[in-house]
Every structure is written in C-alpha cells, then in structure tokens.
Design a protein around this nucleic acid. Structure first.
Lengths: 338, 338
DNA sequence: GTCCGAACTGGAAGCGCTTCCAAATTGATA
DNA sequence: TATCAATTTGGAAGCGCTTCCAGTTCGGAC
C-alpha cells in the first residue's frame, strides 16, 4: 500500500503565492479571481498533483457530491441496466454513486431503520421498488431529494413505463392472434410487496379480457416468485390443467423463458402448440426468439439521473415521466392451432 | 425536500452531561469509558436520533468507510453478481460502496487519469478487468489497498477462477464425447485489452488439442466481441466452413446462446448435429439446457470483500485465491454423429 | 492630479469530530 | 490510613477546507 505524500490546499496556495482563500476560490471556479491568479493556482495544483479533500470541502459548507442508489436485485438485468444508465449520467456531473442493495424484507427494514446513507448523500434514487408509507417517512428524515426509477412510486418524481399499457400490448397481441384461453404467469416478489409493476401488468390481463368480452378463468392465473425456474414450474402447472391455455403471458422475460423450457421439455411446439410472450426485452429474448414488450431500461436510469441533476440544481420537479413501451414480435407467438 | 433538524455531537454530549471527548469515545466504542457513561451517551444519541457526520469524523482522523468498486459492465450478469456478493460483505461491515463504471477505453483512460475516487475511499476493488502497468501506476497514487476479483490480476491480491482449467473442463468434455472438430468462439473486449480470462480460455483450447494429439485447424477459431449477437455471427461463420465443426466451445454462456440461435435457425439439432458448451453457468444456461462450466460468481465477490476487510484491519494479504469451477452437463452436448 | 468604485485578495472564524495530554477520581496496596 | 497506579473524564488543538468581512489595488472619471 503505497502512500502518496499528502499535499493540501495550503501547499498549493503557498506555491502559487496566494492565500488559501484565493486558492480555494480559484480551484472551485468562483468569480472574482484574476485570470492570471487562477492560472497560477491551477498550475500549482497540477504540479503538486493536488486533489481536494472532499471531506474538508464538504464539512466547510459544500455538498456531499454523492447520491445513494437503492436497488433490490443488482444481478438482474433490469436493475443492473437501470443502474448503468443512472451511473453514467451522474458520473458525468462528477457525482459519486453510493450503492445500497436491499434484497429481502430483512435488508429493507434494516435499511430504512438505520438509514445508512444518512448525512452521506445529496439525493437518493430508489430503483424498481415500491416504498411503503412508513418507509417513506424514514426516507424523509434524510432531508434530501428522492427520485424513483423503474417503477412508478407515487409522491416522488419518478420515471417508469406504463405497466398497464405494456401488459395490454402483450395481451392484445395474443388476442389479436386469436387466442381465447390465455394463461398468465404473474410474479410476486416477497421482498417487495406491492410492486406497482405487478399490479399494472396483472390488471392488463383482466382489462384485456373484459374488453374482448372473454371471461377470465382464474385457473389460468399462476403467481410465482420472479425467475426462470419458478416460471418453468408455473408453466408445468398450467399444462396440468384439463384445458391448458393456447398462449401464455408472462410478467417478465426471464419467467417466460422458464415457461419455454417446460414447453420444450413437454415436447410442445412454440408457437405451434403454445404461444409465449414476455415483458422487458431482455437481451436473451432476442437470442431465444421470444416475443415481448420492450421497455427502454437503460434510458429510464438516464432520465432518473437527469432528474437528480435538475433537483440538485434547484429546479422544482415533482412530476413523473412515463416512457413508452413497444411490442416486439418474434417467433414465440402465432395464431392458435385451429 | 424536508430538512431534519441538524443535531450534532455537542448536543448529544450536552444531553448526556459529558464532554464531547467522552461522547466521541462512547459513540465510537473506545475503551476507557465507564459503562454507565457510555449507556447515557448512547441513550442521548438515540433520543435525539443523532447521526454522526462522516465528513467531520473522517476529517478529524478516521477512515472514509468507503471502498470504490470499478467495474466494466454493470449490466452483465457476471459483473453484477460479483458486485452483489461484494456489496453484501462490505455492507455488513458498514462500509459504503462507491461505484465506478468504466465501460469503454475512453472511460478507462478518464478514470485512471482523473482518479475520481482519490481521497474518497479506503480501498478499491477492480472487478473482472485487467490493469495495465501505467494504470497500475496511477492506481498506486491513491495510496490505498487494491483487490481484484473475477479475474487474476497479477501484483494485486485477487480472487478468480483458473480459466485455463475451466476451459479444459469444457474442452475435455467435448473430446471425451468423441468430438475431433471443435470450433472455438473466443471473445475480445475492446475496452479491456488483455483480459487474462480470455488468454486462459484460449490456451485451454490449444492445450486440449495438443494433449489429445489433434492438430488445431485455425479456421475453427473465431474471435468476436462479447455478446449474444456476436456469438450468433460467429456460429454462422463456422457453419460456412466446408467442414463445419461437430462441437463448439464458447468463452461464455451468452456467446454460446448466440451460437445456439444460429444453429436452431439453420435447422440443426443440438446436440444431434452440433454440441455447444459455454462457460459461467449463467442462470439462463440452466433454462436453455446449455452445458457449461460453472464458476461461483457471487462467491468471488464475497471473497474479495473479505479480502478488503482483512486488508483494512491491517492484515497483510498478498496472495490470490483461486476458486474451483465445475463442469455442468446439460442437454446441449452429446457424442458427434457417427 | 485626485477621488471613487469595482475587482481582487487576505485574515480568520468556523464546519463537526478525534485524540493527545493532563486532571480528577477510584480502588487497591503497603 | 497514606500512597500509587489504573481508570475516567475534560480541555483544547487541530483535520483541510469555505466564506464572510475587510483591506488592497487599479483604472478611469472628474
């Protein structure tokens, strides 16, 4: 562990032949510093390869220059992509990202109870998870800006897709193809009760049926935890019905891919025997030829980042932003067998 | 943006009827504080819902309590999983994770040139990317501990798999099944020249051939960027040969899945006509029935986290840790058509 | 040639905490 | 009971910066 000689602003000031006050102003780009002086200070700093101490700077009155990002499942493509987009924007503005992973319910309550990011950030971004009232109250204690992304969270500025509309795109596609017995594999995340996306996507199933004048057969609805394996199990359950569906609408691509596996193993053809549609447009959806409803994930992170920037610069944002989704028809859907 | 009343240590000390010095000691768990006094201070802090100012604390002499994580591709399962494991360990010890994404070459040079994490962290973890000599030099300037994970990076303590061995597991499996014409889809990440994993996995191909006494047909080797689509292209190229391979060894599962798509679209059967093996054991490999070489990804992150903890507690770690890989035989490999 | 205000620059007071040093207290030993 | 060491506590000096408040400098208008 090499240790670089610690050089501080006083050294820079001395070398530039100015006072610390001036050095500070020059370095932080304040007005009322003669161009020549500023240049001299900057040169000195450069020469000494000086790096300002964020702690001292902050303590003396600045901001933290950090934003906390709270995310439930880092390793899932959806969340990681949101994060990637967000980080890019924030970094560009020299803001550091402090990562907080709150996977299960225990993590959640710990996080909101202890509020580990308190006093450490200028804003917090909540990625793809609902925030219940008591949690909102705790978050409020932090006294910083809050933005939600990847899921509409009322009472915070958010960026999200319209999950109801997305679900409808998938369902209407199936209905348009002529399917009348459509199964739904809904996801339930025990760590995130009440995730709005789930509600919207589920409602789409019902509304689509209502609009098409088709009664919903409750047996065609299966709710499982998120993931491929659960999706596979759900499909098996649907296949076990005396009258299996001719098409399946899954709440997410990973779940849909699980369903696909079960269908394949059962020797059924896709879409010949059963059509499958997912939501998200995971990169692997393209590879596996899965019809899905695409949502711009990275972009949602980007937009959230910009929101943070605006908020931090004093703008007063309160509204949410909804980005459009788009049906991507691939090879996993087709008309039902006549 | 609600603002919580700012209460500082002086308030706590006053309420507990002690000096700031004592309050500080009590709060940071120092010895030489009477149990009763400590309890009183803690109670006061609790009552005022006091949160220490990390900046002030740090400035006055502590550590930052932060570690920087540098990662090239957040949204890829492999990196996100490493990150997830790492974060869990660090968080448990109340260390915050500062995320730095360096995707392409430009990001890289910016990162190493500006060293944005300088003076902000106690350690930095480099995830799955090589560090060239000049970069290493820059990193050294930070004067903090450095750990590498998800790829063996000489001269830093690291945790990684043995890529050569992993590659051999895949290749030997294919050879054992009787394949003699084996294609390799190697990956090249332009943003990370010289990634050791690539070298090891490529070497495995050659050594396996040598050990089996089979000459390598260079036309069977295709190098493409990482990803499903490139993998698909590579497979198409291999199929275009007058004598296509009977099996394909891909450097990663995503790439392998791309190859699978091409094979499917070409109407070829897997493994009947062509066997495919990947590396990593991506969750979707299970779903798509892909034979692969599994590596414990999350665990590598975990181990790296523990290394950081040890280093931070003064231990003197210099050696790397290599975790084992394991061949997972699924449905995408079988004996060649006789 | 003098005077005035704008543009710069420096002095110094903190920001909220840690820790060295010394003072005070306590218990045990002689 | 007197004495000494060990334990607790408080005082105070910073840690490295920002910024208010004055003082200084300089050019141009009078």
């Amino acid at each position: 562990m090499p240790s670089s000689a610690k050089v501080n602003m006083a050294d820079v000031a001395r070398r530039a032949g100015v006072s610390m006050a001036t050095a500070s102003r020059a370095l932080s780009d304040h007005p009322h510093v003669a161009p020549a002086t500023r240049a001299r200070v900057l040169a000195a700093a450069e020469h000494l390869s000086y790096v300002i101490s964020p702690e001292a700077s902050r303590l003396a009155g600045g901001t933290t220059g950090r934003v906390a990002v709270v995310v439930p499942h880092i390793s899932r493509w959806f969340f990681a992509s949101l994060l990637e987009g967000l980080e890019a924007v924030l970094r560009e503005s020299d803001l550091d990202v402090l990562l907080y992973h709150v996977g299960d319910a225990a993590d959640r309550s710990t996080f909101f109870q202890r509020l580990p990011a308190r006093r450490k950030v200028d804003a917090v971004v909540v990625l793809g998870m609902p925030v219940a009232e008591p949690e909102r109250e705790r978050l409020g204690l932090m006294g910083v800006h809050i933005v939600a992304a990847g899921g509409q969270v009322e009472s915070y500025p958010y960026v999200s897709v319209d999950d109801l509309a997305a679900g409808r795109q998938a369902m209407d596609h199936l209905l348009f193809l002529g399917h009348r017995r459509i199964g739904m594999i809904a996801t339930a995340d025990p760590g995130q009760p009440g995730w709005p996306a789930v509600r919207g996507r589920t409602r789409a199933y019902h509304e689509a049926h209502a609009d098409a004048g088709i009664p919903v057969d409750e047996r065609l609805i299966v709710e499982v935890p998120w993931g491929g394996a659960p999706g596979a199990d759900a499909m098996a359950q649907l296949l076990g019905l005396r009258k299996p569906p001719t098409a399946v609408y899954a709440h997410s691509d990973e779940v849909a891919l699980g369903a696909v596996r079960t269908l394949r193993r059962a020797g059924l053809r896709i879409p010949g025997d059963v059509s499958v549609v997912g939501i998200d447009d995971h990169p692997l959806a393209d590879l596996t030829d899965l019809t899905t409803v695409a949502q711009p994930v990275r972009e949602q992170g980007t937009l959230a980042g910009r929101m943070v920037l605006s908020l931090l610069s004093g703008e007063d944002i309160t509204d949410g932003v909804t980005v459009p989704t788009r049906l991507v028809i691939r090879g996993s859907t087709g008309p039902p067998r006549p």
